[in-house]
């Protein structure tokens, strides 16, 4: 499997705080990779670095062998990186269809002239991409609803649908199972597995260990900005350093 996302000795400092500290890791095409770690380990910061929200202080991130330094987040998105957010960031005053269409517009590009001329092919590309993403997430019947009226669980799928409308090669999910009950979590795991089977590479952050260990083929563990382990769920479960990071060391007093 070829590398899709390569993170090479990436560091991000905020003033005196080093949120991500020389992190290196690879996500290969077609993989389902989990990123875990205690609160404050720098997982979300790493996601923000990958999607171009924040620039790296040093190091290099490559997507599909292209260096992403200096790219704006919309350019990274158009390369094929779709993401969701830890705290849901849907567009509440827009309908479900219109929310999802934003991803499709991002993929197709937007032009004031084409909109003025009512360019048919541009509009149909957006429309087709939106309906396809709605169908994949089971939101078709809710297309005309205001996003603000959706249940919490549906909003999660709405965010995923919006990212899918970008037709991403890499889908980054930030705590997708947070706030879901066991049934919903199991359903989501099956759904993400289906997306992956259809060819989308998945990288996700999650605190729900059961979810990560059953869904992901490989897990990277982060603590204090550094990567402390990288392996299959079984290997991670045995790793002494991981146990230490989560449970702390035994200290003689």
């Amino acid at each position: 499997m070829s590398a899709l996302l390569e993170i090479d000795a990436v560091t991000r400092r905020f003033g005196g705080l080093t949120a991500v500290d020389g992190f290196s890791g690879v996500v290969r095409r077609g993989e389902r990779v989990g990123l875990i770690g205690p609160n404050g380990a720098g997982k979300t910061t790493l996601f923000n670095l990958i999607s171009g929200f924040t620039p790296v202080s040093s190091g290099e991130i490559r997507f599909d062998a292209r260096v992403m330094a200096g790219m704006k987040s919309f350019q990274i998105a158009r390369l094929g990186v779709g993401r969701t957010f830890q705290n849901l960031r849907i567009f509440p005053n827009m309908t479900v269809f219109d929310n999802v269409s934003v991803g499709a517009i991002g993929a197709a590009g937007h032009s004031v002239w084409k909109a003025l001329a009512r360019n048919r092919s541009a509009a149909e590309t957006v429309s087709a991409g939106t309906w396809a993403a709605l169908e994949r997430t089971g939101l078709t019947d809710l297309a005309g609803q205001l996003a603000a009226n959706l249940s919490y669980g549906r909003r999660k799928y709405l965010e995923i649908a919006r990212a899918l409308a970008l037709e991403p090669e890499l889908l980054i999910l930030d705590e997708p199972a947070a706030g879901l009950n066991d049934t919903e979590t199991a359903e989501l795991a099956g759904f993400v597995e289906g997306l992956n089977a259809d060819g989308t590479t998945v990288l996700l952050v999650e605190h729900d260990m059961g979810f990560v260990m059953s869904l992901c083929q490989r897990v990277m563990v982060m603590a204090s900005g550094r990567k402390i382990a990288d392996g299959t769920p079984a290997e991670i479960g045995r790793d002494a350093q991981v146990l230490e990071a989560y449970l702390g060391t035994e200290e003689g007093t």
Partner: peptide
């Protein structure tokens, strides 16, 4: 910010 992450310039 979110709109930009969805590929909007």
């Amino acid at each position: 910010q979110c709109a930009e992450t969805m590929g909007l310039d």
